[in-house]
Amino acid sequence: MFKDAKFDEALKRKILLTGATGLVGSHILLDLLKQNATLVYALKREKSDLSALKNLFEWYDCYPLLENINWINGDLSSNTVSEVLPTEIDEIIHTAAVVSFNPDDYEVMNKVNINATKTLLNYASKSGVSKFGFISSIAALGRMDASGRYTENSEWVENDSNSYYSKTKYEAEKAVIAANNNGVNTYIVNPGVILGPCDWNKSSGTFFRTGAKGIAFYTKGQNGFVDVRDVSRGMLDVMKNGSSGERHILVGESVPYRKIFSDLCVQFGKKPPRIYSPKWLTELGWRLDKVKSKLKGVPPTLTEETARNANGIFEYDNAKITSRGFEFTPITQSIEDSVPFFKQYYF
């Protein structure tokens, strides 16, 4: 029996994706568009720069798939964003967030990371959305002190070690879990520091920019890292096979920062970091950088929060998802796969 294109489209699973131009969102967008059974609505600001997204699709040899995106112009920081959303959506994947360790950005983080999440959850409840996927962060697990090992059951402890960013992601998580208890099936993933092709002027893309310039100093800190492709696969896997209302840590490896920057520098042909920066020096560094940023009127490169994290030893247990057979990409491989992208588009 003959079926026209409109009939086929009506049968497709309709997914609303936020943050589609960002690091995680762009990779989830790509993976969704590869599935012929999905119809993707991607939310973006009206004047969003799509150059990084276009570079990404070109890099993965999927440029024609850009034509299959149903763009929706809307601002998540606005209370009226729900007015522009489609009336019939099956699932939502919420990746949009402001990632910053600058206390001056707390107000915008509060609007986007917390309030926008609540707005989307309210829309999901009223619209009968069947599943709500939320990209959280290991930061939402809280910081016990300058070190620690974390699982999905780690309890938030209020203290000065928690960044403003972590507080907003934790508050957003609470709203997501509450929505699950009130009838919306919600799925939470907590990625570590995400590495992969993106705009190297934003978020963790700055790791690659730093490696390309070279860095002489290192700290003894350690954190959880994950390949962006694993975050995309992990989010889709959890929404399909995971338990609703629960966290799922997405960390491939807990790696020393020195190892990360050494690998990056080597891949970019620079000398690896070789001078140890003790805690007192990083403390001095963020204070000096704060003064410099005020004088120049630009955001600081090093903040009190990033200096503190640079010296912490953090480990994360990924057994919950790996016990189901999920495999992570080695971080060294992630760096090797990503550096050629930055060489092509940023040199």
Rank of each mutant, 00 (worst) to 15 (best):
N311V: 13
N113K: 00
F7T: 14
T206H: 00
E336T: 11
A212I: 00
E304D: 05
N115H: 04
G224Q: 10
G224E: 10
P103W: 07
N122L: 10
L32H: 05
K174I: 01
Q344Y: 04
M1W: 14
F207R: 01
G214P: 01
N70M: 00
N162Q: 06
Y106D: 11
D31M: 03
T168K: 03
H94E: 05
S262T: 13
L11Y: 11
D8E: 08
I69W: 01
K6F: 10
P103E: 14
A42N: 03
M109Y: 04
A319F: 15
K12A: 11
Q267K: 12
S232P: 01
E253Q: 15
N223P: 10
N241L: 10
E107K: 08
S323V: 15
E283M: 12
D105I: 02
N181I: 05
Y170V: 06
I93E: 05
C265A: 05
I260H: 12
L302P: 02
G74Q: 06
G19M: 03
D230V: 11
I89A: 04
S100V: 04
A20Q: 06
A10L: 02
D104P: 01
N190Q: 13
K271L: 06
F134A: 08
P273R: 03
S254K: 14
V255E: 12
G22P: 01
T332G: 15
S166G: 02
P197A: 08
L76I: 10
E91G: 12
E91K: 08
A42I: 13
I69P: 00
G74P: 02
L43N: 07
P273V: 07
L17Y: 05
K296E: 10
G252D: 13
Y106E: 11
K292G: 04
A37Y: 07
H248C: 14
D237G: 08
G25W: 12
S163H: 00
S338E: 06
N241S: 13
D4H: 11
V98I: 05
Q35W: 06
L56C: 01
D289S: 08
F207P: 03
A212D: 08
G312D: 12
D104A: 13
S82P: 09
T38A: 11
E315S: 14
P103V: 07
D230S: 13
I69M: 02
S78N: 09
N73E: 09
W156F: 01
H248S: 14
N181P: 02
A178P: 04
H27G: 06
V189L: 13
K44D: 00
L121Q: 06
L39W: 05
V24M: 05
D104Y: 10
L236A: 10
S147R: 12
S232E: 09
G128F: 11
V157K: 03
V129Y: 08
V108Y: 10
K14M: 09
L32K: 04
M235Q: 12
I138R: 09
K12F: 09
V238C: 13
R143Y: 05
W286K: 04
L11T: 10
L66A: 00
T87C: 10
M1Y: 15
P191A: 11
I72C: 08
